[in-house]
Design a protein around this nucleic acid. Structure first.
Lengths: 247, 247
DNA sequence: GTGGCTCCTTACCCGCGGGTAGGATAGCTA
DNA sequence: TAGCTATCCTACCCGCGGGTAAGGAGCCAC
């Protein structure tokens, strides 16, 4: 089930999106014949295209063209477009489930475990499967698959809530509403899939780190100042207009 | 340009989604004839359908059926499906722009102004235009409209960053990276559009309030405890397994 | 009452894209 | 050499849905 480690030939990282992704069919002469590898390549290619153009704007001809094969070949490895999306989703979500498993037995406060999960979460969302994982709409899927996906999402959601509750109990997280807090955290991370592009300067992990820092510390200053966000805090203002648009 | 205040007849809030939305064509006899009102009704109906089924899964026949008219009638008020999405987007984003205008001249610390904006932001995302505003993909739009939408989104993004910078300067917000912080905040709020349904218990404003509380305080406890998220914080753990799944 | 305008209809076009039918080719087995 | 299977192809089907053509019913001006 988790044989998703073996990546295809990988002909070096190419930032030019026009170039075809590393494809097992590359030299039509000496074709490899490992079915699983090819099937995986199909799923990866689909993920990339969905990522670039969205599910509905990607045709199976597009995906096939990327792999330098024809549409029926894609259908040889996959039964429908819907299943393709589903597989991409599962590939992405599996990374997050793995993160939960990894921290489950760490002997550190819950907040640190939560942070570790969120970091992997961010990486997964920034990965090539991020789009599919995050934006697979249940309206695009059959009821059965929709249920399946909802269950997986719910599992992750409740995993985060549980870590939050544990953190509140062991004192590493300040008291809060686990449900809404989980929504806020997951939402911020999910949203990465909407703006992140691989050719960006930051990696998924770096973004996740930055977000975790924001979540941990909060906006309000730690030291002293503004005792209760009280009324007349007008003082420091005034030089506002001057500094507004500079840098 | 901002004549978007006048809402149609509004025959009471109906939670049953099957029932048609309040429609000016309701009684086919005495039809109103104010063009702007009808056009607006078309846009609202489109927003509702996009919200329910997504852009690509909504046909113009669906929208027309909701209004109890035929497809060409819809085309009488709108030139294309794309424009429909764009109008929904603008309607939503205008609420947020209004929030920025409202706080611009308040004489309070920047953090409070930011909070006010985020509250309105959350309300807008939870509104009927939330889906369109947040999930309108530029891949679905012509280059021209895509540019337009990007510009509006960028304006909002930079508005948030500016408030954060000002907050850091006036001391109401602890030092942070404005860009990443803005991404985290906006992402969490945008994500509301993915899970919020109108028939839910919480209103958009309540959700936004809860999120703002999380952002402000942060996860780390305020008082004492865990000086620097240091190493061996294993102590309080142990009763973990017992309390994990209770409540 | 006639021309013209607004608004909405029925009936249609047509391309895109998911999905399939029915072979070819290549390699393995014997 | 024949035969079988795995893999990939060319050629096709067909429904959905965006968008249009053309006309008819009400209404107003003169």
């Amino acid at each position: 089930m988790n044989s998703r480690r073996a990546s295809p030939p990988a002909a070096g990282k190419q930032t030019v999106p026009a170039a075809p992704v590393a494809s097992p069919w590359r030299s039509s002469r000496e074709r490899l014949r490992d079915r699983a590898v090819k099937r995986e390549a199909v799923i990866r290619a689909a993920a990339r295209e969905f990522n670039r153009k969205g599910y509905h704007n990607t045709s199976l001809d597009d995906i096939a063209a990327r792999l330098e094969v024809t549409k029926p070949t894609v259908y040889y490895y996959v039964t429908s477009k819907e299943q393709l999306l589903f597989q991409c989703f599962v590939a992405g979500v599996e990374q997050i489930r793995a993160a939960f498993r990894d921290v489950r037995h760490l002997e550190v406060p819950a907040r640190e475990r939560l942070n570790a999960v969120l970091r992997h979460y961010g990486e997964a969302v920034a990965s090539e499967f991020g789009w599919c994982m995050v934006r697979a709409e249940d309206q695009d899927l059959s009821p059965a698959m929709s249920r399946h996906i909802k269950a997986l999402k719910s599992e992750i959601d409740h995993g985060i809530r549980r870590l939050i509750r544990e953190g509140v109990q062991d004192g590493s997280i300040r008291p809060c509403d686990p449900k809404m807090t989980a929504f806020a955290l997951a939402g911020a991370l999910n949203w990465i899939a909407h703006w992140y592009r691989e050719d960006q300067s930051l990696t998924g992990a770096q973004i996740a780190d930055a977000f975790v820092a924001v979540f941990e510390g909060g906006l309000r200053p730690r030291a002293s100042a503004t005792p209760l966000a009280a009324r007349g805090g007008t003082r420091r203002r005034a030089r506002r207009a001057a500094t507004a648009l500079t840098r």
